[in-house]
């Protein structure tokens, strides 16, 4: 029995070792070296790439990334909660409603992001309509700012918030709500004192599942922020392309990776694997 299993695991091990773990190791090595004159990675070994992470020049971008990811995550949870509640209570239509949430997710991420460029740009649909209606005289600068990026991130990762919240609310015993009402709690009190505390695990899962991809987002800030609204992902990409500073880019990547792992570790430690 064990020999067949070993054989079956071999290809997965090979890919994981050679093309996931080894690359991460190379990044670790690069992050400890120095940028060469023509872009390569050379000795001496140094920790300077890590101390540069605290340089205010980059600190602003890191801080902004956290802020934007945080706002987007909060937005996702706030928007998703009532929807998840509605789906959890809609009986036989549950599957249909959930599939409708997932549907845009099966479309290309690039296409979905482009759809928002199409809506928000100066000559985009929103501005055209508002101009035609005479509400505004000049196009509003809707695209290429932080808010456009936040809208794009919320749009992109909303399903990640709906699913864990839904499965949490779905498991919630309906008789608990009846008990609350029976004991004199008005609907909003039952929501506040019973439903919200009992969906905390779902919210934590939703929070981590949305925050992680938002923090590491690259395409959304690139296309909707238009270079004005840079996040960590764009900074990393910059170091590996135009700036040709691989060591610093590697240190940045590892810092981001560390945050992702810490968040995930904290979630799994607190709520166990079932929350995902």
């Amino acid at each position: 029995m064990m020999r067949l299993r070993a054989l079956f695991l071999l290809p997965a091990w090979a890919f994981t070792l050679l093309l996931f773990l080894a690359p991460l190791l190379i990044i670790v090595v690069y992050s400890l070296q120095t940028k060469g004159v023509y872009g390569g990675v050379v000795e001496p070994w140094t920790l300077e790439n890590y101390t540069r992470l605290f340089d205010p020049l980059y600190g602003v971008i890191l801080f902004r990334s956290f802020l934007m990811a945080g706002v987007s995550t909060l937005g996702c949870i706030v928007l998703a909660f009532p929807l998840a509640l509605y789906i959890a209570r809609s009986g036989t239509r549950k599957t249909l409603l959930l599939n409708l949430v997932m549907l845009p997710f099966w479309t290309s991420f690039l296409v979905r992001t482009y759809a928002w460029m199409f809506l928000l740009r100066d000559t985009g649909l929103v501005n055209s309509v508002l101009l035609a209606l005479g509400v505004i005289a000049e196009p509003l600068p809707l695209l290429y700012n932080d808010w456009a990026v936040i809208v794009g991130l919320i749009y992109g990762y909303l399903p990640f918030a709906v699913l864990p919240l839904y499965s949490n609310l779905e498991r919630l015993d309906k008789s608990l709500l009846e008990a609350a009402a029976d004991l004199g709690a008005k609907p909003w009190e039952a929501m506040l004192h019973v439903v919200l505390p009992l969906t905390a695990p779902g919210m934590r899962a939703a929070g981590v599942l949305v925050f992680i991809p938002c923090l590491g987002a690259y395409l959304t800030p690139d296309l909707l922020g238009g270079g004005k609204s840079m996040m960590i992902g764009n900074l990393v990409q910059n170091q590996f392309t135009s700036a040709r500073d691989w060591p610093f880019g590697s240190a940045l990547s590892l810092a981001l990776m560390l945050i992702v792992m810490l968040l995930l570790w904290a979630l799994l430690r607190r709520d166990g694997e079932e929350v995902l």
């Binding site: 695991l9 997965a12 091990w13 994981t16 093309l19 996931f20 773990l21 080894a22 690359p23 991460l24 190379i26 990044i27 690069y30 992680i212 991809p213 923090l215 590491g216 987002a217 690259y218 992902g233 990393v236 990409q237 590996f240 691989w246 880019g249 590697s250 990547s253 981001l256 990776m257 992702v260 792992m261 995930l264």
Partner: peptide, 26 residues
């Protein structure tokens, strides 16, 4: 195998840009 399944799940949440530059470097 906790190491293998853990690594695979980690690859799922690794930001794409990091996967990309790590592969490029490799």
């Amino acid at each position: 195998s906790k190491i293998l399944s853990g690594s695979l799940y980690l690859s799922l949440v690794t930001p794409e840009i990091i996967t990309g530059i790590a592969l490029l470097a490799t």
